[in-house]
Amino acid sequence: MTAHLDALEARSVYILREAFARLEPLGMLWSIGKDSNALLWLARKAFFGHVPFPLIQLDTEMELPEVYAFRDRLVADWDLSLKVELCPPEEAMDQTLPPATRSAARKTEGLRALLARDGYQGIIAGIRRDEQSTRAKERVFSPRRLDGSWDFRDQPPEFWDQYKTEVPDGTHVRIHPLLHWTEIDIWHYTKREGIPVVPLYFARNGKRYRSLGEKNITFPIDSDAATIDEIIRELEVTRTPERAGRAMDHEAEDSFERLRTSGYM
């Protein structure tokens, strides 16, 4: 296990350093969930205790109160540079999207506004291949078009750790340092490193959040796992997908694909 986590960590550190060396300005999306926190931890490893770029929270003001409390505590404890980007309201979204998907699309629009304003060339995001099948097809360095959208039909070749770092002005690259991690890897690593997580992941009264999203479109699962060890044991035997509690994934066969091609994380 140790060797496995070391290998995952080494790869993420390499990716973060490549992004920092080649893309400027660079920012990191921080959703305050378990993956995001592991990513933040990896950045501090990569840069010897520093986080040399801003953290960005795409805020719909719909996160659970525990999430905001956790955020404020970590920003103070770790002396983080956080930018909170307020997302546009749901009424401004594409009305052909199903309701929960439409709600999730607010983050896409928030990100789009941020990119247009601040001209980021690189945006680091903590997605993983095992979360969802369209994410499985992602590149580590994934270029986006001018409008921020993802052209999954024509992704650049990526091999031998040579990443896409040349992009036309006005477009950006998404960097995915956690792409090769799995959900259970994240928990093993969180435990080994002692990374803080929002307490909502731990079961209370037979319920816990397996995946954290906005309160209107994310639901807790039935669980008694109240510690990381218990979560790991639960995941070893579960047959339910991680994002089962995410409403937007289940509204239509392609709802998540539509979200992602338009620029969702």
Partner: peptide, 13 residues
Amino acid sequence: MTGYSHTGPGQQL
């Protein structure tokens, strides 16, 4: 995906 586990024998391939 489901609970994919690393515990147990063998190095990932």
